[in-house]
């Protein structure tokens, strides 16, 4: 009974948040609508990373690479093959899924540190590949795409984000989500309860990469161009920052993380508190601070405040990937 009440409360909060997001563009300028659309892009990307890192416990530092795969799918299909924008999104999801499964296969054998190393290298290697085949990807100069109004981008971005959120919600609530969390908390226990590690890890990587691919293609639509530098290491790291700040293993934190990544730099520069150069410095310091003080991120802030002192310290530690030690 308590569980059902909790679910009802979450649904109510979700509806309110969704309504606010839906009505927000009425008060925004065209430029700020486009900014809102890029918050939606980061929302989807952080959601994707959260599925594989937060819920399944497989760290990925290379989600920018999956965004690149999806973004280039959209760019090449519209630029070279005459597709219109929106039908490329499912295509990006499919291509992203395939890329995710390919990266996820070695992940079956790697643990913790090795997976971090491999995905970090993927994040740096994929833009190099894009540079190397200019006939296919436009090389360093990239490809230009048709522009859209801020409102269109906002609507498409948040519609996609909403669909992805609902998919993630249902995925993580049910049997699959339980299996993911079992893999994260203890691989041995999961395997002995009948969770096939290989299948679930690969599926988590595939679904996550498919979502990141969709995020990448919306990102390309918002930017209306694509080149290898758009999907550099910084993008991958920013997605990770967003997931960490919002809280790994929490769907609520995703919105906080996305807003943090996209809006903090704008807030800092427009209020002249500090220049855009200082943004990475602040981000880095925040990540270290969050890891030192509050490893479960913003989503846990409330929980910690409510249960301050009554819960043991252990429960606020993350248990990701510690199996591999």
């Amino acid at each position: 009974m308590r569980l059902r009440r909790a679910t009802a409360a979450s649904v109510a909060v979700t509806v309110v948040v969704a309504a606010v997001i839906a009505l927000l563009p009425l008060t925004l300028s065209n430029y700020h609508r486009a900014t809102g659309a890029s918050v939606a892009v980061f929302f989807v990307a952080i959601l994707a990373l959260n599925i594989v890192t937060g819920y399944t416990g497989q760290i990925s530092i290379g989600h920018g690479a999956f965004m690149a795969v999806g973004g280039y799918t959209t760019a090449i299909l519209t630029h070279d093959h005459g597709w219109s924008d929106l039908p490329t999104l499912p295509a990006a999801a499919i291509v992203g899924f395939v890329a995710g499964v390919i990266v996820g296969l070695p992940a079956l054998r790697f643990h913790g540190v090795y997976l971090a190393l491999t995905t970090f290298a993927v994040a740096l290697a994929v833009p190099q590949l894009a540079k190397n085949y200019p006939n296919f990807t436009g090389g360093t100069e990239g490809l230009a795409l048709p522009t859209h109004s801020g409102l269109w981008l906002y609507e498409v971005g948040w519609a996609v984000a909403g669909v992805m959120f609902v998919i993630a919600w249902f995925l993580l609530r049910g049997r699959t989500g339980r299996a993911f969390r079992a893999v994260r908390d203890s691989e041995v226990a999961a395997a002995s309860s009948g969770v096939t590690l290989a299948v679930y890890k690969t599926v988590a990587f595939g679904i996550s990469a498919a979502m990141a691919g969709v995020a990448g293609s919306v990102y390309v639509l918002v930017n209306n161009f694509v080149n290898p530098d758009v999907f550099g290491l910084t993008l991958s790291l920013y997605i990770l920052i967003g997931a960490v700040v919002g809280g790994l293993g929490s769907l609520w934190g995703v919105l906080v993380g996305a807003a943090f990544i996209q809006l903090l730099p704008i807030a800092l520069t427009t209020s002249h508190i500090s220049s855009s150069q200082s943004v990475p410095v602040i981000f880095g310091a925040v990540v270290i601070g969050v890891m030192a003080l509050l490893p479960l991120g913003a989503a846990n802030l409330l929980r910690v405040a409510l249960h301050f002192g009554s819960q043991s310290r252990q429960s606020s530690d993350i248990h990701l990937g510690t199996e591999g030690r």
Binding site: I59, G112, V244, V279, G284, A292, L293, T322, R325
Partner: peptide, 29 residues
């Protein structure tokens, strides 16, 4: 050291990533 005390390997990896962003950013700054 403050992160290390919490003991999880993934926390330390993410803290190292934070350090990467921080240091590379301060070079640019």
């Amino acid at each position: 050291r403050p992160v290390e005390r919490r003991g999880s390997q993934i926390t330390a990896v993410i803290a190292a990533i934070g350090l990467l962003i921080l240091v590379e950013g301060s070079v640019g700054w």
